[in-house]
């Protein structure tokens, strides 16, 4: 029975001591400890979220870089293609020009040859005519050196004129 009968003295001391302990521990131990724990947790939380943010940032930077790289690659391909196109066009046009020039020169040469030929032929013709005239004159001079022949010829002309 003594075991389950609370003693007034112990109740008194327990009450007083416990209240003092509660007050002192709450003020000088639990408050700073809880505050420190809370602060540390907050700082850890902050650090973790900062790391997360940094990770995302790096990822986006990486994506940006990749995008830029891809764009640069495209640009390079385009430039290369353009350059090769331009080169090809240049070669082509040069070739055409050369062909044209060649053709023109051949035509010119041909024309010149033709002209030379024509001039030569004319000269030959003129020379032939002059020679013929010369020959004819010489023949005529020789034929008409005697009077009979001159008479005969005159007679011929008259015949011919009469006939006409």
């Amino acid at each position: 029975m003594q075991l389950v009968t609370p003693g007034i003295g112990l109740i008194f001391w327990q009450l007083v001591t416990f209240l003092i302990v509660l007050f002192l521990l709450a003020k000088f131990a639990w408050k700073p400890i809880m505050k420190a724990l809370h602060e540390r947790e907050a700082s850890i939380e902050d650090a973790l979220s900062a790391a997360e943010r940094a990770k995302l940032e790096i990822q986006s930077l990486k994506a940006d870089n990749e995008k830029l790289l891809a764009e640069a690659r495209l640009e390079r391909d385009k430039i290369l293609k353009e350059a090769s196109d331009a080169g090809n066009a240049l070669v082509e046009s040069a070739k055409n020009k050369a062909n044209e020039e060649g053709a023109r020169m051949i035509a010119q040469a041909r024309e010149a040859i033709e002209n030379e030929k024509r001039a030569a032929i004319t000269e030959v013709k003129n020379m032939a005519a002059a020679l013929s005239l010369d020959i004819a004159e010489r023949i005529l001079r020789k034929e008409l050196s005697n009077p009979a022949a001159q008479q005969e010829l005159a007679a011929d002309y008259i015949r011919e004129v009469t006939l006409n």
Binding site: V21, L25, A29, W30, I33, A36, L37, E39, R40, S43
Partner: peptide, 18 residues
């Protein structure tokens, strides 16, 4: 003992915060 332990702990929390 309680005071010794927990005031000590509170002091070490103050000494190296975080």
């Amino acid at each position: 003992l309680l005071f010794f332990v927990f005031f000590g702990i509170a002091a070490s929390y103050k000494k190296n915060p975080g």
